[in-house]
């Protein structure tokens, strides 16, 4: 049993809509896999302990923290990161709303904010302000004071996902 610890194995899951094979050991965090192996550095390492939401990704459409999730447990599931939202040069409606409402300043929390808001709008296409605040409750921002972020998500309500 001992000798299997730390041995990479192939895990197959969907990553941003495409089938993906990851060669990864059981104890590797999804955050480390995404940033260090898959080269997807949009997912940010913030507090690195489940308290700030900067590493929020979607697993099966639900918000999850990549710093508390193992890559191994994603096998067979659908993982989405900020790189899967919009396309280079073509922002999603939510990203455009963050841009136009000045919902992003230093930008470090923004990928996590967008993913948490994306999860909300897929589940509830017409959230009120209380629902928006609740959905972003786990995402910390030290720049904006949150008002512009809430306004951005509110602006994106009703736009095609």
């Amino acid at each position: 049993m001992q000798d299997t610890q730390g041995t990479p194995e192939v895990r197959v899951f969907r990553l941003n809509g495409r089938p993906h094979a990851a060669l990864v050991a059981d104890h590797v965090l999804l955050l480390d896999y995404l940033r260090e192996q898959a080269g997807l550095t949009g997912t940010k390492r913030g507090c690195d302990g489940g308290e700030c939401g900067a590493c929020t990704v979607l697993i099966d459409g639900r918000p999850r923290l990549a710093c508390l999730t193992r890559a191994q447990e994603c096998a067979g599931h659908d993982v989405e990161t900020i790189e899967g939202i919009g396309a280079p040069g073509r922002m999603s409606a939510l990203q455009r709303a963050f841009h136009e409402r000045l919902g992003t300043q230093c930008g470090y929390c923004t990928p996590g904010m967008v993913m948490a808001a994306e999860a909300l709008l897929r589940r509830d296409p017409d959230p009120d302000e209380a629902a928006i605040r609740a959905a972003l409750g786990g995402n910390l921002c030290r720049c904006t004071g949150y008002v512009k972020i809430i306004e951005a998500v509110h602006d994106a309500v009703g736009t095609p996902r």
């Binding site: 939401g53 639900r62 923290l65 999730t69 959905a135 786990g138």
Partner: peptide
């Protein structure tokens, strides 16, 4: 408990 992402896990 926690925040939405904690409750999903």
């Amino acid at each position: 408990v926690g925040a939405p992402a904690h409750r999903e896990a």
